[in-house]
Amino acid sequence: MDDEAMTGRDRGSHGAQPNGRPGRRLADEVHDTLLRQLMSSRFMPDSRVTIDALARELGVSQTPIRDALNRMEADGLVVRVPHAGYRIPPLISRERFDDMLEIRLLLEPAAARHAAERATTSQVSHLRRLLEEMAGLEEGDGPTAYGAFGLRDAAFHDLVAQSAGNQLVREALARLHTHVHLFRLVYDTQVTYLAMGEHDEILAGIAARDPDQAAYAMRQHILLSGDRFRRLFDDTRLGDAR
C-alpha cells in the first residue's frame, strides 16, 4: 500500500458513518503495513514507536495508527509504554521458539489432513492464488517484499486451518503469530525460497484430496522451517537479543 493511496483513503474516511467501514478498511491496511515492517526488520527489538511519527511517515491520521497499534498490543506484538507510545518487544527466546514449534507439530499436520478432506473448491483456489502471489514476491527484492511474503505465508497457513473446519484450532494457531515472530528473527530471502517448494507440496496434497500426503507435507515443512530458524539461535546477535 503506497503512501498516496493511504492518504486519499484517510481523507475519505473522516466522513464515514458510525459503522466506520471505510475507516475500518484503512485501519486493516495500516495494521498490515506495520506487520510487514515488523517482519522486515524495519522496527528493531526494544526500539520505541510513536503514533505521531508513524502517522507522518504513512501519511494518515493518528486514528488508524492507534487502532492498528492497539490490535498489535492485544496480540503481544508491541508493548504500550505510558506517556511514551509503544515499544517493540525483544525477539522470541529459544525456549519460546521450541514451545511454538511443538504446538505447530501437534496442530498443523492434523489441520492439513482435515483440509484435504474438507476444503472447498474455492478454498483450494484461494490457497493456489496465495502461492502465486508469494512466488511473485519471492522474485522481488528488499525488506518490503520480504515482509509481504511473510504476511501471505501466514495467510496460507491460516487458510489451511480454516479449511480444516475446526475454529478452535484455527484460533489457537492464530494466537501464536508464528510467522511474525519467525520472520523477525532474520531478514533472509533464502527463507522464502525454501518455503515455496514445501508450500507447493502441502497444496498438492490438499488439492488431490490425499490426507496422508497433506499431513506429511505439512509436518515436513514445519520441521524443515524449524531447522532453518533454530540455527539462528547460535548467532551472537540472537543470543544478545535474548
Results as ranks from 00 to 15, higher is better:
residue 123 Q to M: 11
residue 114 H to K: 11
residue 225 S to T: 14
residue 193 Y to W: 08
residue 35 L to E: 09
residue 216 Y to D: 01
residue 174 A to K: 13
residue 107 L to D: 07
residue 115 A to P: 05
residue 124 V to K: 04
residue 41 S to G: 02
residue 92 I to L: 15
residue 161 A to C: 15
residue 179 H to L: 06
residue 209 R to Q: 06
residue 142 G to C: 06
residue 109 P to K: 10
residue 46 D to N: 12
residue 96 R to D: 04
residue 2 D to S: 14
residue 5 A to D: 08
residue 155 A to I: 02
residue 81 V to K: 03
residue 199 H to G: 01
residue 51 I to P: 04
residue 137 L to K: 07
residue 141 D to P: 00
residue 77 L to E: 08
residue 107 L to G: 05
residue 71 R to M: 09
residue 101 L to Q: 15
residue 182 L to D: 05
residue 114 H to G: 03
residue 40 S to A: 15
residue 78 V to P: 06
residue 47 S to E: 15
residue 144 T to E: 15
residue 34 L to N: 04
residue 152 R to Q: 13
residue 98 D to N: 14
residue 127 L to F: 03
residue 136 G to M: 12
residue 132 E to M: 02
residue 130 L to H: 02
residue 178 T to V: 11
residue 229 F to M: 10
residue 21 R to I: 10
residue 21 R to E: 11
residue 40 S to W: 07
residue 241 A to K: 06
residue 183 F to Q: 02
residue 17 Q to V: 10
residue 49 V to Y: 06
residue 187 Y to P: 00
residue 7 T to L: 04
residue 166 N to R: 14
residue 12 G to I: 03
residue 137 L to C: 08
residue 69 L to H: 02
residue 209 R to H: 10
residue 226 G to A: 07
residue 159 L to V: 00
residue 212 D to E: 10
residue 22 P to D: 11
residue 29 E to A: 15
residue 134 M to N: 08
residue 3 D to A: 09
residue 65 I to F: 02
residue 144 T to A: 15
residue 219 R to Q: 12
residue 105 L to W: 06
residue 116 A to M: 07
residue 10 D to R: 03
residue 66 R to Q: 13
residue 15 G to T: 12
residue 223 L to G: 03
residue 43 F to R: 08
residue 217 A to Q: 01
residue 71 R to K: 13
residue 136 G to N: 13
residue 213 Q to E: 01
residue 189 T to E: 09
residue 160 V to N: 03
residue 68 A to N: 05
residue 231 R to H: 00
residue 235 D to F: 11
residue 19 N to T: 09
residue 41 S to K: 04
residue 102 E to M: 13
residue 32 D to G: 10
residue 162 Q to N: 07
residue 168 L to V: 11
